[in-house]
Structures are given as C-alpha cells and as structure tokens.
Design a protein around this nucleic acid. Structure first.
Lengths: 332, 332
DNA sequence: CTGTTAGCGCCTTCAC
DNA sequence: GTGAAGGCGCTAACAG
C-alpha cells in the first residue's frame, strides 16, 4: 500500500496538516519540524495522491491537446512546444488524436474528460460552427488554427490569407506567370485551405493574373502532394511555380517533380507552409512560410491559463506572427 | 456548478446507486428506469467526475508516455501508434518530454505523477542501470527501446545488433568496400548507438573488412548527420557507403552529399534506420531498416495492461520484428 | 506555529 | 432491482 499523509504524520510525530503544509511548501513551519517531516517523506517514499488532490481542489493540473495526428510534422512540432510551455507553468499535457474525424472531434468537446482535465487546446479539422456552438461542456477551450465560423471562443492562429498572399507574391517576384496551387479542399469545414486559397487568388488578381491551376487534395500529406503534382503535370501546360498549402504537400510535390527530371526551381519554383524541419534538409531546401510555433504554443497556454484563473472576459482572437523563408526551391 | 450523481438521481427520481449503475453499464436496471436516468443525464449534461472515480477506484485510466522529444519523427510516429492502441483499450495518454536529460528522466521515474497515471511507458536516453535499479516508485513501468543494463523490467525493442548487421550486409551486397557509420555516441548510457555499432562492426568483420570510418554524433538529428558527413568527406578518402544509425542522421548526411554534387547511390550508398515518413519522399528515397512500430506500441501497451491487471510475473523482454527496406539510396 | 474536522464525488458493501 | 451509508486521500476552514 502506498503511504498516505497520515502515515507520514505518524512517522514524523506531527499532524496531517503539518505534513500537508510541508508538501505544499507553506512557510509557517519551523525548521526543525520541516526537517523531520521531510525525512519521513523520504523514508516512506511518500508521493501525494494526485487524484485525491484533484478531487479536493477541483483542478487537476492536466490539460488536453487535441490534434489530428502527431505523425504529421506540424502537429508534432506544435505539440512539442505546447508540452514545453505547459510544463514551465506546471501543467501536464494529455494528447487526443482525432484523425480529423468529426465523430472524434465531437467527443473531444463533449466533456468526455470532465474533471480529469482543467482545459482543452484544440485544433479541429472537421467541426462545423454549429458543432462548436452546440457545445454544452464548460471546460475552458482554446482553438488553435482557423476560427471555425463566428464562434465566440478563445483562439490563436496565423493570418492565413496574408501569409498565402505573401507566399504567392514571392513566386510572382521570381517572374513566374503560370502559378498553380496545391491543397484546396471541398469540405465546408476546411477553413485553412479556404483561407490560403483566398490569399493565393488575391495575390494573383492584384497582378492581373489568374491561377494556372488549383489542385484539390483529400489530406495535407506527402502522398497527396505527390499525386496532385502528377495530375498537374499530366494535364496540359505545366506550371512554372506552385504554392503548396503546407510543407508536406510541397515535399510530396517536390518528389514528383524531381523523379520526372523536372528541375526545381529552374523549371518549377515551389513554396510550402509551416516550416517543418524536413524542409530545411531536403534537396533543394524548401522555401516556406514559417508560423511562429513557439508563439502559438505560448499564447494558447496563456489564453487557457487566463480562462482558468482570471476573471471571465470576452473571447480573445489572437494572431500569431509568420515570416517568409526563401530557400532553394525559389532561389533564382 | 457541475451536476453530480446525486443531482441526476433526484432529477430522475431514483437513487444514486441506480444512476451509477446506468453510467457504468451494469445490467440489472429495468428498461424504464434506465431510460429515465439517461434522459436526466442528457438533460443535465451530466459527466462523471473522473478525479473522484479515480480516487475511489484507485486507478485513473491514464498512462504516461515519456519520450525525448515529439519533434523527432520516430518518437512522433511511435506516440501516434501508442495513443491509438491505448485509446482502443480505454486508456488516455499523457506525454512527458525528457529531452534526453538525465534530470528529467529521473523525475519521470520518481513517481512525480503518482495516482494520476496508472502506468508508464518510457523511452530513456540518459539513465544508467543504477538509476533504474534505485527506483522506489511502484508505478508499473515498461521500457521502450534498449534495455538499460540488466534491469528486471518489462521491455520491448527491436534487435538492434541483428538489424544493424542486416543494414551493413545490404551495403556489402552492393559491392561496396569503404563502409562508414554515422551515429556512434560516447555516453555510457547510449545503448542504441552501441548496439547498432556492434552489429555494424560484426557484419564487416564477417567479410574480413574493417570500418572505413565511424563518425560520432551528439544527437540523432538531421544537423548532426549533415555535420558528420561533411567531416567524413573532409578527412581523407570518402566512403562509398554509409550506415546511418537513424533516418534523420541519414537525411542530414544525404543533404551534405547532394549539396556537394556527390551522387547517391552511384558514388555513395546510404542506409538509415527507423523508416520515418520523410525517407519515403526524399530524392533519392532512403533505404532503411523498418522497426514494426505498430507492433512495438501494441506490445508496450499490452505489457502495461498485463502488469495492471494480471498476476505479477517475471519481467518480460520482448523483441519487435524489423525488416530491410531497400530504396533508391542503395539501388544499383 | 500546529491540530481537528468536514467534505470534494464517486463506487462498493450491505440491506431491503 | 433499488436504496443508504461509508470512506478513498487530500486540503480548507477553523481552533488553539
């Protein structure tokens, strides 16, 4: 049996409360008593029962991070940051993977982890505004990535329209004219793809151009990018530049181009989005838009912390910085 | 205030026990009563308090997965699998990142999460056998990856020596003679590197050869692989084949080779270890040893589940399957 | 500065 | 098939 507070108290010859005071770092304990209690804790290898503490205090110190899939580099890198930041602030992070499936995403916001988690960081893919609006669970929630409709929820994301505009403008600055996009999605909930597509179109329109082509994908995976690029190449005039809506799509597209002997960037320039580690070591290295992931993670945890401690205020919509990182796939 | 079991009971006009029976799916509840209770649960949006349940039952349904860093693709892919498998068996997974730092790894096995987690899956990097032997916490623990000394702990890993032998033999089968390794590590705790080095040496010795070179690295990151390859190329005769102790090292090495105009595999053949997604889309695609990650994740969760439910038996040492996947970096 | 008491919400035991 | 009572281990409130 694990030792309890009571056991430590008996062992040290003090009351339960005193042990509790020592464990929780309260000040008003004499040097001598403290030392005796600490010795008893050490000797019995006492560890506080976090379930009991959580029940008593009404908070567990655990938050959940719900993402589509950790094997997607962007989410893995984001999770890394979130866990780091959370750890610094004394939170423990539990991970839920939704695979972007609406059923699983609904479960995540249904309060399935009631009183196990104090708050939830959530990057939804399939939820509709109605789904979020219909939520009854009261667990504080912060959305990462696109706002899902006009939800009145805390939220942190990059400005996708502006970033996509910037990526496209970068391709235009190379003198390219036949600019295609890879990554459009038909689902009504695919806000990220829609916003990046909007920025892409706007940048072209500003120069009096129209998209050379817009390839749709199912997911943002390498294989989708590879297939989409193959399709672009097989149907009519090839593009001379492509904006891929994320880096994994771009790396898949790059693979297709190189395997067909098409030179990058000479024949086709390429830019992605996310700045994942892979793109810094591909050949050629991948130009990209880098969202400030550390900022996103930090802001997300901060928003949640505020919801849990500060007075309730209106939902916050924060915008994380991003920057263009030109690399070899757009080097002249 | 969140509704409690008692509130639901009053609302439905039954006792607490009956509601509890419904919530926990017990059978002996009449159809009618069950329906009334379910309606009340729905109406009040009742969710069981998991902290209270956990305190009462002595188990939380949460396990921890402790890995060095989720932004390392191998661990991200492993975590994905672990979370999936755990979810299927009703476990929730919480992640601890150690950065391979001994202090953090010690914290992980110190029982810091006592009674919050029911068990721990742990992939240590820096711990010594003595550290593990000195552990006092009783939380069931399963080690992933190399055995740390002769610890009597549950454990699942691939046979690194055999796998490294196989990778090296594959390079030899191409007729290469000047075969180098990248990934040796000096730390006494670096069991993975030591075992792969052993398999590498053994395969060469079996053919009457000696290593052309053995490059040491600090971490198994792309940048370490790139730097190590640069060093190999700058010091004497270049190798004609290289076994990198993991895929990220190999992708870093590949970057260095290609950026110097060295042809892969014509001039230098390359093989990695882990079979991460990136290697399937690099140009050229990366030959590798693929550990069966799904098997590892499944076995790990199974070992832990057994510890938590079955009678205590001797620690199990399981070996996960692996296979050689030849791709373009070793294609003749 | 230290001790006592009550109760967080749930599930299990024992009645009925 | 359902109801009542007690306690899991902890901390807050209140004494002393």
């Amino acid at each position: 049996m694990r030792p309890r507070l009571k056991d430590v108290a008996e062992h040290a010859g003090v009351s339960i409360k005193t042990v509790s005071n020592v464990v929780n770092g309260y000040l008003h304990v004499s040097q001598d008593t403290r030392a005796r209690v600490e010795a008893a804790i050490e000797e019995l290898a006492y560890r506080p029962n976090l379930s009991a503490r959580s029940l008593r205090q009404g908070r567990s110190g655990v938050i959940a991070l719900a993402v589509p899939d950790l094997s997607i580099p962007y989410f893995a890198e984001l999770a890394t940051r979130v866990i780091e930041v959370a750890d610094l602030r004394g939170w423990t992070v539990l991970i839920d993977q939704t695979q972007g499936q609406r059923a699983k995403e609904l479960l995540v916001i249904s309060g399935i982890r009631a009183q196990l988690i104090d708050g939830l960081l959530f990057s939804p893919l399939a939820l509709t505004p109605a789904d979020l609006a219909a939520r009854t669970d009261q667990t504080p929630l912060v959305l990462l990535g696109e706002r899902v409709g006009r939800s009145s929820l805390d939220h942190i994301a990059v400005d996708n329209v502006a970033a996509a505009h910037q990526a496209t403008t970068h391709l235009l600055s190379l003198g390219r004219q036949r600019i295609a996009a890879i990554g459009a999605q038909r689902a009504a909930s695919a806000m990220t793809a829609k916003q990046r597509l909007r920025g892409f179109r706007a940048a072209l329109t500003a120069q009096g151009l129209t998209p050379h082509a817009v390839a749709h994908v199912r997911d943002f995976h390498r294989s989708d990018g590879a297939a989409a690029m193959a399709q672009l190449l097989d149907s009519g005039t090839p593009p001379d530049a492509v904006f891929c809506f994320n880096d994994t799509l771009a790396l898949g597209a790059l693979r297709t181009l190189l395997s067909r002997g098409i030179r990058v960037p000479e024949d086709v320039a390429l830019i992605g989005f996310d700045d994942i580690e892979d793109g810094r070591f591909s050949t050629p290295t991948l130009s990209t838009i880098a969202p400030d992931k550390a900022h996103i993670a930090d802001a997300a945890v901060t928003l949640l912390t505020n919801r849990l401690t500060a007075t309730p205020g209106p939902p916050q919509e924060l915008c994380a910085p991003h920057r263009l990182i030109p690399r070899e796939t757009t080097a002249l």
